[in-house]
């Protein structure tokens, strides 16, 4: 499917109940690759962009994440059955997770992004019941970004020791002894 068709299909799954009413202003933090949507009113709860990326990007709110992911995998038209990359990103103010999905039947790809402003206790739904590879990748993200995943069967530190203080891949992590900053 082309990106346009994908966008049309996926946005129809999550109609914005407030469509027609003035949409909330969308927070865009600095250093973020996503531009503000062009239309003043977003008919969907999701935001789509293709700017600055070779894939179609979907931004989703944390509460819709699991539902969207389930749909993406289960729907016969999309059938994104291959999660090929799951990365945690520290956007400065927000923490987020980026999911790269591909369909092995149609060979189209999509990028799903989710972020939260809560840096103290960031929480997302786990997707490891949808793609089992997420189990390890989410542990890695938990280890380095401190993002917790609900319903994860075995969420504990993977690379670092249990008593490690802080989350090294966050931008505000400091370790004066071991980190060499140029």
């Amino acid at each position: 499917m082309t990106n346009e068709a994908l966008q049309k299909l996926i946005s129809s799954w999550f109609p914005n109940p407030e469509a027609g009413i003035t949409p909330e202003p969308i927070q865009v933090s600095e250093g973020e690759g996503i531009a503000e949507p062009q239309e003043p009113i977003n008919p969907s709860l999701l935001e789509f962009t293709e700017e600055g990326s070779q894939f179609l990007n979907v931004s989703v709110k944390p509460e819709n994440l699991h539902e969207l992911m389930t749909q993406l995998k289960a729907s016969n038209e999309t059938s994104f059955d291959y999660l090929f990359c799951l990365s945690g990103v520290d956007w400065g103010t927000a923490l987020g997770v980026v999911y790269h999905l591909e369909s092995t039947t149609y060979r189209h790809s999509i990028v799903v992004k989710v972020k939260t402003e809560d840096r103290e206790d960031p929480n997302f739904d786990s997707v490891c019941d949808i793609w089992r590879t997420a189990e390890f990748h989410e542990r890695e993200v938990f280890d380095f970004f401190g993002i917790k995943f609900h319903n994860h069967p075995n969420l504990k530190r993977l690379f670092l020791t249990e008593e490690w203080d802080g989350f090294p891949l966050r931008k505000d992590y400091v370790d004066e002894i071991n980190m060499v900053i140029k």
């Binding site: 690759g33 600055g52 990326s53 070779q54 090929f84 990359c85 990365s87 790269h100």
Partner: peptide, 22 residues
Amino acid sequence: PKGEFYQKVETARGELGVYVIS
């Protein structure tokens, strides 16, 4: 340039992805 870039290659072990946010 500002943006996100993803490149896949096939190493001897499988798919290596490089995901750059610039």
